[in-house]
Design a protein around this nucleic acid. Structure first.
Length: 592
RNA sequence: GCCCCUGUAGCUCAACGGACAGAGCACCUGCCUUCUAAGCAGUAGGUUGUGGGUUCGAAUCCCGCCAGGGGCGCCA
């Protein structure tokens, strides 16, 4: 946020070192740790190391400190800097607090719900996420892609990109055929109940159970697959109807979760194009057609690339009977997305880590085939949500926690808690709070965790509203709102007064302002690294700093000048918290 | 056999190659006639799995090993 003064000082240091013949390495600027004071810091270890490598006999840390001192002595007065310190090889520049504090707070209050957003890059990014299978239950295991992908889409958009939110529900494949077979044979004419995805899951579980009991029935399933492949009207019609049931069910889930999509792709829609690509790959000698020997069509990627060590291995891209695999469809999908959005600069796939090799293969094959778009495809892998004891949720095994159940439970628990904590909440207000808190508690553990780390789901943790969790951050937001409300009542004014921070700021205030000022750069980092965790941490840190401020610094009771300044700081905190939570797909209530 | 991920306080997790590795939970001690205690302050808790290497500096980068999880030609 203070790029210009950083650059001014940096160029000053550069010319200074040039004068003295000190070979200066690149300077990196960071906040000064061990706060209480506020500023930026850089070190001279790299420069000292350069000298050492050039043959000078020096002790690096000592020399770094010498350089820091020299720079400090000849730097003179710099605009906006109150004092300079050379310590342990570091050069610490402490901000002129009043000036910087005012700038940070003014900036937030000016930009409001845009504070933290990056300038428009003019680039478009597609984020594909969720990809639930139709004809199956929607359970907690599916939650991560939905929540993570949603947060990433929000963050990337806020960072300055035009975002296309894409979904790719698995609407065809063996699981669907199995479902259709069981429906025709055992459930014909039945219709879904209120919890659609749950009912779909029941039929699917029934199919698997019957097939396990009587493996001979597989032949019937294969027959249904053949009918599908020949576009048998009865099968196609049934498939269309039942598929829609699933999609309706998903929409219920998405709207409950506050997630939306701009664009839907379906494997079924990519089958034909995919087969075309396979044919092309065979013709061009990239793929090997082993069907005449009873094999499948495959690409021996390592062989094609002339690699001796196995790396990309072999990918099967068409079944021996000529039917399409997900790989077939994924080949086509790569191109389909760029056909729909020719200006796409990146195509992001938020899919679980078990499919890493699959995507590496798909993108590599397309690259070999000369489709440059493959270079713009990124697989963002995440780990699964498992049950205690490392049990993977599986619709087949019936080891699932249904999303319907979890949502209901989380919201009802939140309602209970909210009523207990604040009995004055009633009716619609209580409902709003319960939703915000229940959903927040559900989403936070997912977005606040490293993508590559496993999340173990257990009811106790999911419904724990204390400590490092969404409700803590939401509560800070509520307290901000509370202070503002109170001040309005007392002063009978609705507008914030201009104010300066021309007083002795409390360390808690400095800490808070410091963290707020970092939010915009954290947004950029989170977008670049595909890590909502960065936002979740920043939001929590701000909430924590605010809690400290709340305790140590009276606002409404403070004398006029300080009161005006703190009121602005509180308003700025409120915006920052709300913006950060919004990026995580979590709403910030005004009361709770 | 090959590849990927993970290993940090009792537990769950943080920490752009930088200064004293930080939170939460649990435990213990305080704090509500003052802006909502879903809160605050304090105590305690660590050879960052292990052995080397690179570096002025390593939880972070490289190599070996150990442990757990995942992937590897017709599932998605």
């Amino acid at each position: 946020m203070f790029q210009t003064e950083q650059e001014t000082i940096e160029s000053k240091i550069k010319s200074l070192c040039a004068e003295k013949g000190i070979p200066l390495a690149d300077l990196e600027w960071k906040p000064i740790p061990f706060s209480g004071e506020w500023g930026i810091s850089t070190s001279f270890f790299a420069s000292a190391a350069l000298e050492a490598r050039a043959g000078k006999k020096i002790v690096v840390p000592k020399r770094a400190q010498e350089i820091a001192e020299q720079v400090k002595d000849s730097l003179g007065a710099a605009v906006g800097i109150s004092h300079v310190e050379a310590l342990k090889g570091y050069l610490n520049l402490y901000f002129d607090t009043a000036d910087y504090a005012r700038r940070v707070v003014d900036t937030v209050l000016e930009q409001k719900d845009c504070f933290g957003s990056g300038p428009a890059t003019g680039q478009r990014v597609m984020v594909e996420f969720s990809q639930p299978n139709t004809h199956k239950a929607f359970h907690v295991g599916h939650l991560r892609s939905a929540i993570l992908g949603d947060a990433l889409a929000r963050i990337i958009e806020f960072a300055g990109y035009a975002v296309v939110r894409a979904n790719y529900p698995g609407d065809i494949g063996l699981h669907v055929i199995k479902w259709l077979w069981a429906y025709l044979k055992y459930h014909k004419g039945e219709e879904p109940e209120t919890d659609i995805t749950q009912w779909m899951g029941k039929v699917y579980a029934d199919a698997t159970r019957r097939l396990e009991e009587e493996p001979d029935l597989e032949a019937e399933v294969r027959a249904v697959y053949a009918r599908w492949d020949k576009r048998d009207p009865e099968i196609v019609t049934l498939w269309e109807k039942t598929r829609q049931w699933s999609l309706d069910g998903f929409n219920q889930m998405y709207s409950a979760l506050g997630i939306r999509f701009d664009k839907y792709y379906f494997p079924s829609g990519e089958e034909e194009a995919g087969k075309g690509i396979v044919e092309e790959l065979v013709k061009r000698g990239i793929a090997t057609d082993e069907r005449s020997q009873g094999g499948a069509v495959l690409v021996k990627i390592d062989e094609v690339l002339g690699l001796t060590k196995e790396q990309y291995r072999t990918a099967v891209i068409l079944r021996s009977d000529g039917t399409a695999l997900y790989a077939t469809e994924d080949l086509a999908l790569v191109l389909h997305k760029f056909r729909d959005y020719p200006d796409l600069s990146r195509s992001v796939y938020v899919v679980d880590v078990r499919q890493s090799l699959h995507f590496t293969q798909i993108f590599k094959i397309m690259e070999i085939a000369g489709y440059e778009q493959a270079g713009q495809c990124v697989h963002v892998a995440y780990e699964l949500v498992t049950l205690p004891g490392n049990v993977v949720m599986s619709s087949r095994e019936g080891t699932v926690v249904l999303l319907e159940d979890l949502l209901r439970e989380a919201i009802s628990r939140a309602k209970e808690e909210a009523h207990k904590k604040n009995p004055s909440l009633d009716g619609e207000q209580l409902e709003i709070v319960a939703h915000a808190v229940g959903l927040g508690a559900l989403k936070y553990p997912i977005v606040a965790r490293e993508n590559t780390k496993l999340v173990t789901f257990d009811w106790k943790a999911a419904l724990d509203f204390n400590g490092q969790a969404a409700p803590y951050i939401q509560y800070a937001h509520v307290r901000c709102n509370s202070i503002i409300k109170k001040s309005k009542v007392e002063s009978q004014k609705s507008e914030l007064q201009p104010a300066t921070f021309d007083y002795n700021l409390h360390p808690a205030e400095i800490q808070l302002i410091d963290l707020i000022s970092r939010f915009p750069s954290e947004v950029q980092r989170a977008a670049a690294e595909y890590k909502p965790l960065i936002i979740a941490s920043n939001a929590y840190d701000i909430a924590k700093a605010f809690a400290g401020f709340y305790d140590a610094c009276p606002v409404v009771q403070a004398e006029a000048q300080i009161r005006a300044a703190r009121l602005r700081l509180v308003a700025a905190t409120k915006y920052t918290l709300a913006n950060a939570l919004a990026l995580l797909g979590i709403t910030a209530p005004d009361v709770m």
